[in-house]
C-alpha cells in the first residue's frame, strides 16, 4: 500500500479535478431503470435440488432450475401516461443457472419525475414471439416447437415432487403458446397466446436527473401453485405444454408471482 501512495494521490487528484470540472447533472438529464431478478420460496432465497418445499396442494417438491422471459417493461406516470421501455433490449432472459442473466439494465432513457408503477409481459407477446428470433444459446434453447406454433417457451420451471405413494416424479412447468385440439381427430385447430401482463405492486419510484433506480424483482415460486388456483401436481401431472387447461391455470396464478423491493443503489 505504501508503495502505491504517490500513484494513488495522483489518481485521486485527477478524479477531484475531473469532478470539479463536471457541471453536474442537468435537471432534464434522463435516468435509467435496473431490474435484478431473485427467486424465493417461503419468504427465503430458493434452495435448488432440495426437497424441502410444500406447495398449497400439499405436494412436497424441489426446484432444479427456472428459465424465463420477461418483456416490454412499461413505467407509468401518476397522470396515467405509459412509457414502454423497448428501445433496446425489449426481451430479457433470466436463468437461475446463469448469474449474468439475473440483472436487466434497461438501456432506455427515462425522464426525471415520479412514476406510479412498473409492469412487464411475462413471456413474449404474439407479435414478437416468432421462431428464429434468438439463434444463440441460452435463449435459443427455449424454443417452442414449430408444431405448437413456434416461438419460445415463456418459462421452464423444472423440478420434482413427491406424489402419492411417496414416489418422486419429475415435473416440467413449461409455459408457452397453448393449443386447441379437435376432440375427435386430435388435430390442432387453434392456438392460444398465454403471455400475460404483470403489474408489480408497490413499484412507484422517482427518477432523479442522471440517476439509476434499481429494483429487486422477486419471483415467489410458491405462488405458481397457489393463488388464485391451487395447482396440484398429483392432478395435473408433470407436464403441461400440450394441456391448455393447465397452462391457463398457471397463467392466472402468474399474476401474483412477482413483487419488488427497491434497492438502495445508484
Amino acid at each position: 500500500m505504501k508503495k502505491q501512495l504517490p500513484v494513488l494521490v495522483i489518481l485521486i487528484t485527477g478524479l477531484l479535478i475531473l469532478t470539479a470540472c463536471n457541471k453536474g447533472s442537468n435537471k432534464d438529464d434522463p435516468g435509467k431503470l435496473n431490474l435484478y431478478f431473485t427467486h424465493l420460496a417461503d419468504g427465503s432465497t430458493l434452495e435448488f435440488d432440495t426437497l424441502k418445499y410444500l406447495n398449497a396442494a400439499g405436494n412436497p417438491y424441489l426446484v432444479s432450475e427456472i428459465q424465463y422471459f420477461i418483456s416490454d417493461v412499461t413505467v407509468y406516470r401518476d397522470d396515467g401516461t405509459a412509457f414502454l421501455l423497448d428501445s433496446g433490449e425489449d426481451i430479457h432472459y433470466v436463468d437461475t443457472d446463469l448469474p449474468d442473466t439475473w440483472n436487466y439494465a434497461l438501456p432506455d432513457d427515462i425522464e426525471p419525475g415520479t412514476y406510479d408503477s412498473i409492469s412487464f409481459t411475462f413471456g413474449i407477446n404474439e407479435e414478437k414471439n416468432k421462431s428464429q428470433l434468438f439463434v444463440n444459446p441460452p435463449e435459443s434453447n427455449m424454443f417452442w416447437p414449430e408444431l405448437l406454433n413456434g416461438g419460445y417457451h415463456y418459462m421452464k420451471l423444472n423440478g420434482k415432487w413427491k406424489s402419492a405413494g411417496d414416489t418422486i416424479r419429475p415435473f416440467n412447468f413449461h409455459m408457452g403458446i397453448g393449443q386447441v385440439y379437435d376432440t375427435l381427430t386430435g388435430v390442432i385447430t387453434d392456438f392460444v397466446q398465454n403471455y400475460f401482463r404483470v403489474s408489480l405492486p408497490a413499484s412507484g419510484f422517482t427518477i432523479e436527473p442522471g440517476k439509476t433506480v434499481s429494483f429487486e424483482v422477486r419471483m415467489d415460486v410458491q405462488q405458481w401453485f397457489e393463488n388464485p388456483h391451487v395447482y396440484d401436481l398429483n392432478y395435473w401431472g408433470g407436464k403441461m405444454m400440450q394441456n391448455q387447461a393447465a397452462l391457463q391455470t398457471a397463467k392466472e396464478n402468474g399474476h401474483n408471482v412477482f413483487s419488488v423491493q427497491k434497492l438502495l443503489l445508484e
Partner: peptide
C-alpha cells in the same frame, strides 16, 4: 421428437429452433 406428449427429445436435442 418435438412434442412433450410424444418422445420429447427436443428439450435436450434441439430441433428447428436449435
Amino acid at each position: 421428437f418435438t412434442t412433450e406428449e410424444g418422445a420429447d427429445c427436443f428439450h435436450c436435442h434441439g430441433g428447428f429452433g436449435n
